[in-house]
Design a protein around this nucleic acid. Sequence first.
DNA 1: CTGAAAGCGCTTACAG
DNA 2: CTGAAAGCGCTTACAG
Lengths: 357, 357
Amino acid sequence: MAAIKDVAAEAGVSAATVSRVLNGHPSVSPESRARVLAAVDALGYRPNAVARSLRTDETRTLGLVISDVLNPYFTALARAVEEEARALGYSVIIGNADERPDLQDHHIRTLLDRRIDGLLLSPAGPGAELILDAVRGGTPVVFVDRWIHGVDVPVVRADGRAAVRELVGHLLALGHRRPAIIAGPASTTTGKERVDAFRAALADHGVALPDAYIGQGDFQAESGRLAAERFLDLPRPPDAVFAADNLMALGALDAFRARGLRVPEDIALAAFDDIPWFVHTDPPVTAIAQPTDELGRAAVQALAENIAGREPPSVTLPARLVVRRSCGANPPPGPPGPVPPEHIEHTPSARSQRSDP
Amino acid sequence: MAAIKDVAAEAGVSAATVSRVLNGHPSVSPESRARVLAAVDALGYRPNAVARSLRTDETRTLGLVISDVLNPYFTALARAVEEEARALGYSVIIGNADERPDLQDHHIRTLLDRRIDGLLLSPAGPGAELILDAVRGGTPVVFVDRWIHGVDVPVVRADGRAAVRELVGHLLALGHRRPAIIAGPASTTTGKERVDAFRAALADHGVALPDAYIGQGDFQAESGRLAAERFLDLPRPPDAVFAADNLMALGALDAFRARGLRVPEDIALAAFDDIPWFVHTDPPVTAIAQPTDELGRAAVQALAENIAGREPPSVTLPARLVVRRSCGANPPPGPPGPVPPEHIEHTPSARSQRSDP
DNA sequence: CTGAAAGCGCTTACAG
DNA sequence: CTGAAAGCGCTTACAG
């Protein structure tokens, strides 16, 4: 591959001049510029980003370590992050932790070794040692979605408490009396917060959340299936299940189906994180939707600020409840206001309703 | 951040010796090794991968450019790729083309500038210029899933023809007489092949595929919705729709639901690419499943071979039909043989069937 | 406006 | 077994 000295030779100038032209430095004569550009074209020259990074001590690269690529929520987040990063002139390298702290550490280490300019992290576990190292070492870090207590970096996330409260009101209004939750790992903030919010909202209504009704999952589908099965094996199973993410809801659906249970007649289901498929599941799943794109954008902006040496504030955006049929509700007769097209819930038509008993 | 010379100073040896220790070079005295290791530990030293890459001319990094991160098929592929790459000591940088050739080129260029050791590509369009440049420039390239005619690099993909033939037999056996397809872009191999296979299989049965029954999509959900709507606006709409990927099937479901159509009573639906949600949609969707993990692994292995200077062969794995209820079939009474757990289709229980008319 | 030179942090023949 | 030196491909004060 052609290097800068080849271009310099071809253009009859020094490497310094080639570099100046390529970096838009103003003090280059029009003639030199033209000859350099012609040489670049002739040789198909592309600057070596590795060499440039070594010299400038910046890679124009952001690291994004997410907990699970198979989770549509994180996929959507990753897409938003990449878009905003690209707009700001950054590339992003995604590391998939697969909900495994050891894999997360592997990716953080690799990213740090590559000297990324900043790190966006949705921690899969409580281990903060490596992250503290990164921060101490001067790498800007921003948490997104999940964070770690005691690590003083900005956090960009959604607050689902109001939506969970709404969900609980919804469940109780529909007559469910034995609500259960499939929780994420207590070692993650979202794992803990969603249970706390659920328990608190139930307590407001005088409803208890017994330990047996708290299933322990890991945010992945299989754990949702197992937790749901354990609920169903209880002498007195719950009559409603709130899955703390969409994958565990998928697993719970698997379990319900395997037992021949009807949703919501036999058991209600709701999920944290809304995804397009929830409109088409049988039945459509009531879910708490996060403003994922906004979170991704805000996270990148915060990180960019941090890289620029400023101290960005944390950002908390509200999540909202999207009612469908999986808890037994009929969708409201009309949309409550202007709603973006992809969020319009279609009521079942007269025709398809006629097929019901 | 500590550099190698800091470690050398701390250990009282030269940078060369530090380097040798870190790279497991045999000729280092035990004493030197111990002192270097102690210094590394004391300083929390981590080698700068940028500098190392510049010197060794290898980045131990693979690029993976996929057509759409929001597509669960590509997400699963990316995960398999990363796993196999990690096992082989590589990192992978994912570029999301979002089905846009311009974005794809942006990512390829960025990856090449970063001097990745090899490129895995599922082309979003027919543009081969940049790819040919890469190959000429000596970067190993392997196509995965999709490929480009006339570019002589190994291809790792699934052959869905037999499965499509099976699907067509299935549709016709169930009495469907006006099958249509929502195709991907004809500029992609999978976009073209899936239509061709569908048309050929129909022809075998003496059934025509009129142009009006070929909807043009771009593999993304919205295009599936639009194509389905156009079908439904026809004076004589099709009675079965085959979506060439899972996202367009999602869009078609949106359209059917908006019109109040029942699947499969009013219109049948099948999709290329199987995803976990298809088990739980209303109704469960009959789909053609690719051996995604195997494809990802094989692609990385081929690329690694290529990087090692050998000439790996292309790999073609068969796809298979997974029958569910969206075309009107009842699942077979028992599994036809050993089936991995996640692929077991549960028949609706007596209990839930009783809720039907 | 331009070039020679230094240097980013490594690795690796080469000489001892 | 070990170190001094060169060099990977850039960028950027510095001097002219």
